[in-house]
Design a protein around this nucleic acid. Sequence first.
DNA 1: AAGGGCCTCAACCGCTTTAGA
DNA 2: CTCTAAAGCGGTTGAGGCCCT
Length: 300
Amino acid sequence: MGRQPCCDKIGLKKGPWTAEEDKKLINFILTNGQCCWRAVPKLAGLLRCGKSCRLRWTNYLRPDLKRGLLSEYEEKMVIDLHSQLGNRWSKIASHLPGRTDNEIKNHWNTHIKKKLKKMGIDPQTHKSISQSSDNTHLSDKDKKQSSQTPSPPKEHKKEAAGSETEIIETNISDLIMDGFCTEEVPLVEPHEILVPCASSSSTTSTSYSSSSSYSYSSFSSNSESAANLLQDLMNEFPEFEWPNICEENGIVEEGLLEDDFGSSWDFVVNNYEGGNANNIGNDPFVGLELDNSQSWVYGL
DNA sequence: AAGGGCCTCAACCGCTTTAGA
DNA sequence: CTCTAAAGCGGTTGAGGCCCT
């Protein structure tokens, strides 16, 4: 017996999702939760197959996703994990909260792979290309690119004499020192993801802001005040040295945090009920900003 | 300004794995 | 244990934007 297709493809829409479809899917998932993807399109009023809905949600609409390019630390993690796990993108993604397997796979193929090749490292084996006995696994296009790529600098040729571990570690360090771009690119406007609160006792707080320069991450919390929310964030992100904050209403606390990786973060905790001077929201929130570029607002 | 080539990444395809009857 | 449906996963595609000539 032949395998049935995952869905009746006749009449189903394919291709890029529209904002209207996104809204329908977000509303449905946040109201009903994730269950039985095959039934989702019908119940949500979408002309898509369940698989397409699941992919759209997991790869793009999920509110806990990080946005923008991978940080230096995340790239190093991906390279290290790939050397251990190979192309098991979902396993790699599971070590990077807020990142999807698709995102990591794309980033690997478009950025990291090229960078490693340029440094004389075989992206598949993580060995120096000069050590590889053959490069027959490369496609014609790869070979062409490889032939156009300048020889590795002398330092790398010198490193080839050392142990494999040393080579990889040194090259990864060089890679990071080269400086990857960490620009943040918000992709979803907040007004597009706001949904009516479900009447049920949802434990997910909806995050928002009127500024498009922020990322809008939901944060699972039972918080009823900014102080409680901050406490939840402290538990979630223990790598920060969090300050003590005033628990009175109407207090805005600002300051600097430093994470385990030496990055300085501006933070602001707003206890105001019913709006604030920056018009960021009408409820208490906790905001984090890295180098004036990456921002997260955790609202109630 | 035009157009051709390259790059990026969202989305799709098809195979594999998992869950449950 | 077997079969089937659903979900998960990784490879691939192609539209759209960017860059270079």
